[in-house]
Design a protein around this nucleic acid. Structure first.
Lengths: 224, 224
DNA sequence: TTCTGATTGTTCGGAAATTGTAAGAAATGA
DNA sequence: TCATTTCTTACAATTTCCGAACAATCAGAA
């Protein structure tokens, strides 16, 4: 369960916000002493902070700087002045997002969710297309099948990439040719055939048989 | 240098956005074929996506789903209808943020920056990148391996830094060249090769063999 | 400034992987 | 069956990358 710290001196707003986020399953913390926000932040140790800009003693920008000096916790600014200048400044100070008062509670929740997701659950950046046990790695242009790694050349990769990003849809030879040899319009029509043959051979050798189907007169397809 | 993919069919908006982000040092990609956005996404391999909701053929929500099925790349929705319902839906679909048209370019930049920071740089602030026993120290540009310190020159360091901060991901020679010789556009293509050779030699001498792999025609990669 | 060593860029020959071509064979469907 | 399309195979061309040697550049010391 994620902990949300609300740094807002208007009791009414703070209460409504807190109750709403609680009802969505978050553990909510509020600030009691606006002279010592940083200490309460450390004590509560939240996964995300909602930080009002207009506060007693010190403003939100100040506390953003303080928090950033010790933590990378996501911070969403809340402000009644939603002029562009203000937004840009908040973001440049290390804030992650900005919400203007009066706000829609659903938007607050959605923003909190989105930012938590981005910060904590989107850990690794793996770009993969999986289909029928074959996994195309878009990061390093390789194909994996049953713990076996198949190295692909540039053309092989591009052809497979097109077909696998449109599983079940027929892609015309023409379209693939345009994608591979866009400007160089003097390549033989058969060149594509040969490249497909080479790709198929690698797939067969790896144990993936009949993966790329020919639809005569229409194009190629990787069936669902 | 981060790559931003703009998925926007209004040429005027797309152009203005693109130019503005370029001037901020981002590499900008645009969509040509709105029927096959996913393929162009894969080909461009951006670090962040700006995705308009109203598009020909399929809407932005559709492509958000498609992209999310293969990637965790940060996505900022752009829409002309900025009703709350729309915002909540976009965020719940896996989007990270939402910008309403007409937008202030400074806000777009600030949001892009904030999201990139949240996604990529907060994770790299350790000042050390470790992989397969090799530790790259970002503070003093040295590499350590089994209690041995390997001194790197500026170019060697920058190449290794790019590759090690994207473990398992192919980086094109082009991209590395732009990172090293951005303005000085007259450096020979082979200069990179020679620099890689020199770096590899140092790695080999230190006992780290086969660290940087060549993917012919695509780029270099440090395998996972 | 001039010297010196380290670093970086260029040139050139060459190797190897990749890709394109050609020609005949096979498959497909009307 | 027959025309058309696609496949196969071997070979040639091209692309892409490598690395040695040399030249230029840069930075610090004398």
């Amino acid at each position: 369960m994620y902990k949300v710290l609300i740094v807002e001196d208007d009791k009414t707003i703070s209460k409504i916000l807190g109750e709403h986020l609680s009802s969505w399953g978050y553990e909510v913390g509020q600030i009691n002493d606006f002279e010592h926000v940083l200490e309460e932040f450390i004590a509560f140790d939240p996964q995300i902070v909602l930080l009002d800009i207009g506060l007693p003693y010190f403003n939100g920008h100040h506390w953003c700087g303080e928090i950033r000096s010790i933590s990378k916790v996501p911070i969403i600014f809340i402000s009644s002045a939603d002029d562009n200048m203000n937004i840009v400044m908040a973001l440049n100070m290390g804030g992650d997002d900005f919400i203007a008062k009066p706000f829609d509670l659903n938007i607050v929740t959605a923003k909190v969710q989105a930012l938590l997701r981005r910060t904590y659950s989107f850990k690794e950046q793996t770009n993969l297309i999986e289909h029928r046990g074959a996994v195309l790695n878009l990061n390093d242009a390789t194909l994996s099948y049953q713990n076996e790694r198949i190295e692909l050349t540039k053309n092989e990769y591009r052809i497979l990439q097109i077909l696998m990003s449109r599983i079940g849809k027929i892609v015309s030879r023409d379209e693939i040719m345009r994608a591979l040899w866009e400007d160089d319009s003097f390549v033989d029509d058969n060149t594509l055939t040969v490249n497909v043959t080479r790709l198929r051979k690698k797939l067969e050798e790896a144990g993936i048989s009949g993966y790329i189907k020919t639809k005569k007169g229409i194009g190629y397809v990787v069936e669902v």
